[in-house]
Write a protein that binds this DNA or RNA. Structure first.
Lengths: 202, 202
DNA sequence: ACCTGAACACCGTTCAAGT
DNA sequence: ACCTGAACACCGTTCAAGT
């Protein structure tokens, strides 16, 4: 067989991504193999390598979609009149809920480590930054006298903190705690951190 | 060939762990395979399965050693006269420095996810708790009026926070920041969190 | 009794050869 | 031109068979 031309490369790409995402959601990253993705879309493995550089490339594109969805969730239902502090806490809640409701796709983002020879592409970094920027913008009104670099450091510390709680919670490294406990821990982190960050500004 | 009896199973176990750790340190977890470990100690793959249940079991034992070393680092050079707040910050520094100086072994602890059918053994959980207890004990004098459960929640939030910063720092998810920036972020997290946690107690 | 090594069921990745 | 499918170089894990 050969020369089927049933689908354009663009179409094959989208089909492969959709199939890969379904595998990830259902079985986690251990279940994702090139052969499975290929057979799911009715092509052979070789075809996948016509469309993606390798499996890492495919994973990166799944992660890009995941970041887009997360960004959507974080900016959706934005209620500008809300008190800023609540808005920040809400962002944390959204993140944690996202991680719990879609643990495999969420975990995939952090399982991927950039190798030395293939550095993270710019389009990917940009998507990651876009999510992060939401936090930074929300934090700003809460400490108006802080410099831009202080704010971005605070957003970093805070978000990494939420993320760490999420990880240890989901991977059960803190014992068998549910989403509610994780939410509480995150809230405690944010409230106490903000108390220091907002009050002690120049 | 067969029946060599050059080493007891105990000895083979130790040799295998040592060889595996060297591979991890030098090549990271991707480089760790049962065949490599076996050939490194002069036995065949099969022998490894006489001594470990599987590769996961072997990794768990490496992680146990890593946790022991981390605990050692955190309790070594304890200077009781030091101000408590500095001691806590020092713990954070030790953790971050540890992660940076031994990134592969550190990462291995968090790459391992407990599967449903093989839950984390008690002896492992105990070792993880022992590290965590150091944080909790150090935190206690800083907020003497907090309840035990508030303290343990705070230790959780704080430590998970440090850990999150560490992860995002080392895996370059915050851009290409060095150990110094990570240390600063962690310090910012601890100082601001403590400010809220100590001052707002009943 | 202790260990081997070959086998099984998989991988990611490549690329000559079919249509 | 487009895709195949067989090949290569690996995996983790098992277990009959050698000494």
């Amino acid at each position: 067989m050969a020369r089927r031309n049933d689908h354009s490369h663009e179409e094959i790409r989208d089909m492969a991504l959709a199939a890969a995402e379904q595998i990830i959601v259902e079985q986690g990253s251990d279940g994702l193999t090139a052969r499975k993705v290929a057979s799911e879309i009715g092509y052979t493995v070789g075809t996948l390598y016509l469309v993606f550089a390798n499996l890492d490339d495919l994973i990166m594109h799944i992660n890009a979609r995941t970041l887009d969805r997360l960004h959507q969730l974080m900016t959706d239902g934005e209620t500008p009149n809300r008190i800023e502090k609540d808005r920040l806490i809400q962002l944390g809640q959204i993140y944690i809920h996202f991680a719990h409701s879609d643990p495999h796709r969420w975990a995939l983002i952090f399982e991927h480590r950039p190798s030395d020879d293939r550095p993270t592409p710019d389009w990917y970094i940009e998507k990651a930054m876009r999510v992060f920027a939401v936090v930074e913008e929300t934090l700003q009104p809460l400490a108006p006298r802080r410099t831009k670099s202080e704010l971005s450091q605070a957003a970093c510390a805070l978000w990494a903190g939420i993320h760490g709680i999420c990880i240890l919670g989901i991977t059960q490294k803190l014992g068998d705690v549910g989403e509610d406990s994780v939410q509480e821990l995150a809230k405690s982190l944010m409230v106490n951190y903000l108390s220091g960050f907002s009050n002690n500004q120049a």
